[in-house]
Structures are given as structure tokens and as C-alpha cells.
Nucleic acid binder design. Structure first.
Length: 257
DNA sequence: ATGTCGAGCAAAGCTCGA
């Protein structure tokens, strides 16, 4: 079973890119982030025609997350992260696909920091850690996939000082990600490629960063115990980032036995 | 400080978010 995560950065504007990648990569389940489409504007028909069922939680202009399943309908389990009934941002959706509980996560960016957006990022992280703790303890096959907006370690960014003040690299952001992992989750791509220095999933549009491979690893697939035992492979479809009209993220994927 | 990209608002170019 192949499971992917892809920050599409506007599902309607980049629909041809998404359909092309689905056709060639044929993932069994896909987590999308940054739909940037309100609920009624999700391109359901085109995605169905490509052979995928879908559940999604849209929002006007910003955010938005979805889960697609090849030849199946994902079984929705929740479409918001518990812990704050006043949070109206569409950043979490969870569904069962082929016996695996899958979450599509779009963690807040948090810039500029310090400030209210960074506070929101850290508070959202705490809610995720609380919910993930319950899922891990349940000992189910779970994959928490998405754009975490965190560069976990120095190995996960090209050599630069340019991002030192960015919310994605702050010690608080990294500590929260490390605390999530410490519940027992496996960072699948780093597990598979422990020595790779350019395991990036994001290249900023600015300053030719794609052309000089100045990337960041922001998109992660975290595996519960039973799914980690089934991990057989994975990678980043980085060529997708170089195509006409591409998202600034590339798809990351894993295979489970 | 800058660079890129796109949307919203509202009628063109600025502001915002990423």
C-alpha cells in the first residue's frame, strides 16, 4: 500500500499537476494540504474520474485538507483536531483507508515569530500531540501525514542562515516535533534515508531555490508501531517540483507491506 | 531587504499569507 502526502498549494489552479502525478505515481492513498478552495469548490468530479474517492474539509482562500483513496471511498473519522471548538481553520482531516487510519495535517506556518501566529502554531501543536498520543496508545495502524511546517534538524535544510529567524526552524517548533516523535512515532522518510542530506520536500519560489536545490524537509509521514513494522520503502517525487505551474512542495510517499 | 506566487478586494494596485 502506497501512501503519499502532497501540499498542492491550490487544488484547482494545480489540478493538471495533481492529475498527472496521480496517473504516474498511482498512490493508494493521498493526503493533500493547502486546497485553498471552499468546501463546494473541491474538484471532486475530476478526482473521481481519475479513479479516486475523496473526503475533504475546505475553506475559502486558505488552508484546506483532503484524503483520497484509489478505487475506494475513505471512511471519514473526523474533520477537525480536538481541543479548540473556536478554531475555524481547516487543517486536519482523518479517515480510514484499507484498514489504515490516515490523518492529513496542515500545521500552521507560524510566521512572523514571535507573535500571535507563532502562538497559534505552538497551541495547535499541543492539540496534535494530545490527539496523536491517544491514537498511538490505541495501537492501531496509523499514518500521520502532512505539511508539519517544521524543519526537524539541521540535516533537513540546505546550509544557510537565511531561515534562522523563521518559525519553521525555531527551537520551540523543533522541540514540539521531537516531543510528538517521542510518543513512539517513526519519521518514515528519515528512517529509510538516514544519511541523505537533501531529502527535501519544499523549495521556495523565491531566489531560484529550486534551481540550486536550496530545499527544506517539511512534509512528514509518521508511523505508529504496526505501520512502522510494515514499512518497505519511500521517497520524494522531486521532479514534480520542477514542472510547469508546480506547487512549491513535492509529494512524499511510503510503501507498506 | 530582497526575491515568487496567487487571492481578495474592487476596479488597479496594494495587502496578505505562505
Amino acid at each position: 500500500m502506497k501512501i503519499a502526502t502532497f501540499n498542492i498549494n491550490n487544488v484547482n489552479r494545480r489540478l493538471p499537476n495533481l492529475l498527472e502525478w496521480l496517473e504516474e505515481a498511482k498512490p493508494d492513498a493521498v493526503c493533500l494540504q493547502e486546497l485553498k478552495a471552499e468546501q463546494s469548490r473541491f474538484p471532486r468530479a475530476a478526482i473521481e474520474a481519475a479513479g479516486y474517492g475523496a473526503v475533504w474539509r475546505g475553506q475559502k482562500t486558505w488552508n484546506g485538507v483532503a484524503i483520497l483513496a484509489r478505487g475506494a471511498e475513505p471512511v471519514l473519522t473526523r474533520d477537525e483536531l480536538p481541543g479548540d471548538p473556536d478554531d475555524g481553520q481547516s487543517r486536519y482531516i482523518e479517515a480510514a483507508v484499507n484498514g489504515v487510519l490516515i490523518a492529513s495535517i496542515y500545521l500552521p506556518n507560524g510566521n512572523p515569530q514571535p507573535g500571535p501566529k507563532f502562538d497559534y502554531k505552538l497551541a495547535w501543536f499541543e492539540r496534535l500531540i494530545a490527539h496523536a498520543g491517544e491514537l498511538f496508545a490505541a495501537d492501531l495502524p496509523v499514518v500521520l501525514a502532512g505539511d508539519y511546517n517544521v524543519v526537524p534538524t539541521e540535516r533537513d535544510i540546505y546550509p544557510t542562515k537565511s531561515w534562522d529567524d523563521d518559525a519553521l526552524l525555531q527551537p520551540e517548533s523543533r522541540a514540539a516535533f521531537a516531543r510528538l516523535l517521542s510518543q513512539g512515532w517513526t519519521d518514515a522518510l528519515r528512517r529509510l534515508h538516514p544519511e541523505t542530506d537533501d531529502l527535501y520536500t519544499f523549495w521556495d519560489y523565491k531566489r531560484g531555490r529550486w534551481g540550486r536545490n536550496a530545499g527544506l524537509r517539511l512534509d512528514h509521514l509518521l508511523l505508529s508501531r504496526s505501520t512502522a513494522d510494515r514499512l518497505t520503502g519511500g521517497g520524494v517525487d522531486r521532479d514534480v517540483r520542477g514542472r510547469e505551474g508546480a506547487s512549491d512542495h513535492a509529494p512524499a510517499w511510503i510503501s507498506l507491506d
